[in-house]
Design a protein around this nucleic acid. Structure first.
Length: 130
DNA sequence: GCATTGACGAAGG
DNA sequence: CCCTTCGCCAATG
């Protein structure tokens, strides 16, 4: 079944600064991201999976885009793709900002990729349980 | 209001 | 093993 008017049912409204009543998928993502322990990282898919929308990992990435303006600050540098690559570093203040933040927390990064990613990996589903 | 894109990911060739 | 396609859903043009 194909719903053509699917674009009309927008329930998430991030570009809102005042209306805090807008509880969205994005805020959920931020909440999880903020719980990532220092020196640990996770993936977009893991967060999406935790929120029950694992097929929508892209939305997590999109949420991170809005995380830039989120308050309190969201450690977006701890969220990378499933490959352990700093795919979103280009969206930081500077392209090197993300790596600097990670290395500052003890995460080794080389060529935009996290070393020992599997060790550093922090799965909300597993760590936070349910 | 339709088409394209996007900080992803899994599956298929 | 590398590249392409598809799915997901919201934002943007």
């Amino acid at each position: 079944m194909k719903n053509i008017s699917n674009q009309k049912k927008s329930k998430a409204k991030i570009p809102v600064k005042d209306s805090s009543k807008n509880y969205t998928f994005f805020e959920d993502v931020w909440s999880v991201a903020r719980q990532i322990p220092k020196g640990r990282v996770t993936s977009y898919g893991a967060i999406a999976n935790y929120l029950g929308t694992k097929l929508s990992a892209r939305m997590v990435g999109w949420a991170m885009n809005g995380a830039f303006k989120a308050k309190p600050k969201v450690p977006a540098q701890r969220v990378v793709n499933r490959n352990g690559m700093l795919s979103g570093k280009m969206h930081f203040e500077t392209p090197t900002r993300m790596q600097e933040l990670l290395e500052k927390e003890g995460v080794r990064v080389e060529k935009d990729k996290i070393i020992d990613f599997e060790k550093r990996f922090w799965d909300p589903l597993k760590e936070l349980g349910l």
